[in-house]
Design a protein around this nucleic acid. Structure first.
Lengths: 215, 215, 215, 215
DNA sequence: TATGAATGAGCCTTCATTCAT
DNA sequence: GATGAATGAAGGCTCATTCAT
């Protein structure tokens, strides 16, 4: 089970490409082997079984993503800068690894049991990052004080994911990273006008803690 | 191939329950037959093949969702009301049909080729709905004028999906529909403070049309 | 998992024939299916897996053998009659089921883990039968009193098995059951002459109980 | 294909140990290589293929057994002594080489085609040894004159094998060689009493030659 | 000589689909 | 219409064997 060799990378990359095209469950070892230019049996010298390929991918992806995201946030001075950096890093990473992006977005729900752990880590990391940004912004006075971070995380994460998914399903022909700026603008300002927002309740929810506890 | 009979519904419902638990690719006709209380062969009297079950589900779901969403929007007076009604209808529907929600959210990416058409319709419908709301809000002066509707649609759709996914993965133990209000608040107001937003560019993107064209 | 149907028997019989020719481990499901005239998949409607075929065979065999042997012994009046009946029943049964005999004799040692339980039962039954005969003979005064039944069982069982094995490996061209009489004669009289036996120690072993305890 | 080197022995010994634990068919070259502390490929420098390992083992075993058995018999003065020496040598040898014993006993039937030749030699040698002993005993007047040597060989060989098998399957925890004496006693005297044997026919079989010819 | 990475044929098993009843 | 036994193609995985180093 030699890992971190050239052939390991070669197979992993090929596998992700195949998974991206046919989905994990519909992909076969033979297809991966062919894509990687090795024999079927060779795959089992580097991966325990088919599931293991996906797990390895998620673990690596989680690590890479985590590093990139924290770097991005740390490089920002103001909360808004940090948010922008985060979104931009997210979009740029997935744009540079479109197959990885497709697999990551697609299999997360279906192979939940398999990749639960990396996904949980990723989710927690994302929440921590958002928490950091919100805290900073609240100190600066640029971010509202009455926010449930869990929901903000889902707002941002969900919107970014959807932008990525649209990019994937429309043939990846526009510049994904360029969406960072308008996205951040929407996150910060919302879609309402200042005057219109007077009528919008500041959502005095009863069970703030309960909701916050969810994620 | 009689559709719209009791047995048809019985099988479709059973299939969705099974798909929700094991994923489409990992579900077998036998499991569905057992869950539905019919023989394996009977399924082929109502569905062309396994794929057809999923396609039928997506088509029905799309139709139902479409009706509900337009109803919801039409019932709102102001743009904000309409948006709230839309989000609430979305969350409430998926809360009342958790298995359908799981399948819908999970298989959309993976079975893309299979369900492309209903998904496109759904996406277009969602965009139309959002367009209507935004138009109305802009007339009212409650929604900003400088918005790219495609991106707003992805913001809202993505955030709602993420809220639903979190609900699914945390055991469906909190009230999903109750998230409508805080979500709408975030969409309208954003997470920034009025004063802080002075420094945020109104995103004078060059390629508005290009981006808008995407979805 | 329908058992006791015609097709079940058909497959089991075919499997034993194949196992007899190539050995269990070297036999393939496809070979069995072909021999039985069914599709590969059909086998799995009647057997859990390949191992299960062998286990089923051993369980059935053990039951049949057990019944036949007790019947045979019960039909004998004197101990010598009973022993003859036992040996004859054993040889006749295996002669009538040569493939079963080959598999039974051949796989017992190698698939020990798999068929441990039926083999233990069979071994215990054999020992019980021998015990019964020896007891009866000792009462009659026709069987020596200084015997360790466990060893007698191994003597008889081993000799009969070897006779069967020789029959198998020499092409099954002589009458196996006819060997019962000379075999019993050897068991009873031994190979020595009455006068020569004066010099043979009656084996006053120290640890009779210990040895007896073995089987 | 250098044979008789240290490494050759090392691999052969390891192979027998592995075969004893998992059976020949279930053992892999990798397991043997690991047990022997060499690389997989190295095995093919000393053995033609996997089958060849078993064949080599049987050939060596046959030679060793043959030498030991003849030595044992030659060392005996009377026929009974010789028989005792033979049985004792057999049991002692297998007790000292339990893995060899397990493999020898277990694979003989299953790998018949593979090891037919050594087995035939072994069987012939055993028959020759028994013939010698019987001849000598008949001259001495200590062995009955009306014996079919082939059957006597099967009686003795089968009983000894069964004793060995029982020893193997009961965890090899009793002294195998010590069974020689009671076994010989049973062979010589039989299990009947002198008086009871009056009624036992001296088996005047018609087809003595036919039966004798078998092995 | 020795190694062990690579190969690919072959096996067990699953399961969508068919069809005789 | 309804059944479920039967099919057989296809997939994951193993492992004996080879060969470049």
């Amino acid at each position: 089970m030699k890992r971190n060799t050239d052939k390991y990378q070669q197979i992993l990359t090929a596998a992700i490409r195949v998974f991206a095209h046919r989905g994990f469950s519909q992909s076969t070892i033979s297809q991966i082997a062919q894509e990687a230019g090795v024999a079927d049996g060779t795959i089992y010298l580097y991966f325990k079984n088919k599931d293991d390929i996906l797990v390895q991918f998620y673990e690596r992806m989680t690590e890479i993503v985590s590093n990139r995201f924290w770097e991005a946030v740390n490089a920002g001075k103001t909360a808004v800068d940090q948010l922008y950096n985060l979104i931009h890093a997210h979009l740029a990473l997935f744009q540079s690894e479109p197959f990885g992006a497709i697999v990551y977005q697609g299999e997360t729900h279906l192979q939940w049991r398999l990749v639960q752990e990396p996904i949980r880590q990723m989710s927690k990391m994302y929440r921590d990052v958002i928490t950091r940004i919100v805290d900073q912004g609240q100190k600066e006075g640029t971010i509202r004080g009455d926010l449930y971070v869990g929901l903000v995380k889902r707002l941002i994460n969900g919107a970014v994911d959807e932008v990525i998914n649209t990019w994937i399903h429309t043939g990846r022909d526009h510049d994904l990273a360029a969406m960072a700026e308008p996205l951040v603008n929407l996150f910060i300002q919302g879609i309402g006008t200042p005057q219109g927002q007077k009528g919008v309740s500041p959502t005095p929810l009863k069970s703030i803690n309960e909701i916050n506890a969810v994620t």
